[in-house]
């Protein structure tokens, strides 16, 4: 089932990707071809088959919940595009009215 350009636009919005009309059309065609290929999964009878939820389940061990030294805030802020008073600085999230 091919995707429509509107559907691709919706997916891009969910994924927070700014794409132009040409890109949307291009991805629409490519994603449709990939989805067409993966559609063969619906042919597999999975009645009573549990979903894989992780590969390491039998070996997972959580570490002790103890505090330990981490990286300094200045170190963690070093790669940020914009900082102020030891914090990440971002443009407004809400309208400023």
């Amino acid at each position: 089932m091919p995707l429509t350009v509107e559907e691709v636009k919706h997916i891009a919005t969910l994924a927070r990707l700014e794409l132009d009309e040409q890109q949307l059309a291009h991805y629409c065609q490519q994603l449709s071809a990939i989805l067409d290929h993966v559609a063969k999964l619906s042919r597999v009878d999975t009645t009573g088959v549990p979903a894989t939820s992780g590969l390491a389940a039998e070996a997972v061990v959580l570490r002790a919940d103890e505090s330990r030294p981490g990286l300094e805030p200045e170190t963690l802020l070093r790669n940020a595009a914009s900082i102020e008073n030891g914090q990440f600085k971002i443009p407004p999230v809400f309208d400023q009215e």
């Binding site: 993966v38 999964l41 619906s42 979903a51 894989t52």
Partner: peptide, 15 residues
């Protein structure tokens, strides 16, 4: 369910 859920079940069969 149709995509991710089914894929994780078929993954079990592959395993």
């Amino acid at each position: 369910d149709a995509y991710y859920g089914q894929a994780q079940k078929v993954r079990t069969l592959i395993r």
